[in-house]
Amino acid sequence: MAPSGLLVTGASFAAFRGLHWGLQLLPTPGSAAEDRWKWRNTCVSLVHSLLTGAGALLGLSLYPQMSVDPIHGHPPWALVLVAVSVGYFLADGTDLFWNQTLGQAWELLCHHVVVVSCLSTAVLSGHYVGFSVVSLLLELNSTFLHLRRLLLLSRQAPSLAFSVTSWATLATLALFRLVPLGWMSLWLFQQRHQIPLALVILGGTGLATVGVMSINLGVHILVSDVLRSQPCPPILGNKETRGTRTDCDGESITRDDSTLSLKD
């Protein structure tokens, strides 16, 4: 299984790097012109999330054996889906490395290293593919995270589209991020005596890392998009501009959480 998995991973890496380069030839919306790279990077991430998130949900619906036997029970195409995701994270890590400083990107780069290490185990061994496919359900939430970020970059906050996206982000975060993470953590704990210790440590580290980042992200979105967006009594002299608003204490809040972006 390893040679074919590595071939798919390499092809995926090349395809996503090509998409990064191809988007440079397309015009960027004027409202996002201040940060063209971030716009392109988020668009590529959105393509990956749509592809792998929908693939994981459809695959688990058609082949529930993957959740019953996450180690051995999987169809051949499931390994392809996981390998495609590994290629994406390698391509995105390369893009981050070349376009941001280490201080800006270290958190995401550490996240990518952990995710690639975990998913690569399935690609190289041909085992734990079902477990990896379950983890790709998180990409359904990432789809809305990327849409939300594109709206922020486009200065579309506050707006109805942004509000709907924020609520969809929180809903899918609970359903397709926290629930799968909880299931995977419980399964790993129950099977800890039947799995090599190195894999238990690797899987546990990955789940803990993504879990903490997911909770922090959920709290941030809840506070910035929901709690602080409650209507306030008008204050004389306070003016709001598009992309900026004022909270009930008179503090100016800029809607740009561009440094807080989770890619799973």
Score class of each variant (00 low, 15 high):
M1K: 11
A2K: 07
A2R: 06
P3D: 09
G10Y: 01
A14Y: 06
A15V: 11
F16Q: 00
Q24G: 12
L26K: 09
P27C: 06
P29N: 11
R36P: 14
R36C: 07
W37E: 12
K38A: 15
K38S: 15
W39M: 08
N41W: 04
T42H: 04
L51T: 08
L51R: 06
A54H: 05
G55Q: 02
G55W: 00
A56Q: 01
G59S: 04
S61R: 09
Y63W: 14
V68R: 13
V68K: 12
P70H: 01
H74F: 07
P76R: 03
P76Y: 00
W77S: 05
L79N: 05
L81M: 02
G87A: 00
F89G: 01
F89P: 03
L90F: 04
A91G: 07
A91L: 05
A91I: 02
D92S: 02
T94N: 10
D95R: 09
L96D: 07
L96E: 08
L96N: 06
L96I: 10
T101M: 10
L102R: 14
G103E: 07
A105T: 07
C110H: 06
H111D: 00
V113Q: 05
V114Q: 01
V115I: 15
V116T: 07
V116H: 05
T121H: 07
V123L: 05
H127Y: 12
Y128E: 01
G130C: 04
S132L: 02
L138S: 02
E139I: 02
L140A: 03
T143P: 03
F144E: 06
F144C: 09
L147M: 14
R149G: 08
R149H: 10
L153I: 11
L153Y: 09
R155C: 13
P158K: 12
P158I: 12
L160Q: 13
L160S: 13
L160G: 12
V164I: 15
T165H: 06
T165C: 15
S166M: 08
W167L: 15
T169P: 11
L175R: 10
L178D: 00
L178W: 06
L181C: 01
S185H: 02
L186E: 13
F189T: 14
Q190P: 08
R192G: 07
P196D: 04
P196N: 08
L197C: 12
V200S: 08
T205L: 10
L207P: 00
A208N: 03
A208R: 02
G211M: 04
G211S: 04
V212A: 06
M213R: 14
S214Y: 04
S214P: 05
I215V: 15
I215D: 00
L217Y: 11
G218L: 10
V219N: 06
L222F: 14
S224Y: 09
S224K: 15
R228M: 14
C232R: 08
L236W: 07
L236C: 05
K239H: 13
T241M: 11
T241C: 09
G243F: 03
T244N: 10
T244K: 07
R245T: 10
D247A: 04
C248R: 06
D249T: 12
G250N: 02
E251T: 11
E251V: 11
E251M: 09
S252P: 00
S252M: 11
T254A: 12
R255W: 11
S258D: 13
S261Y: 08
S261D: 14
S261W: 10
L262N: 01
K263Y: 03
D264L: 13
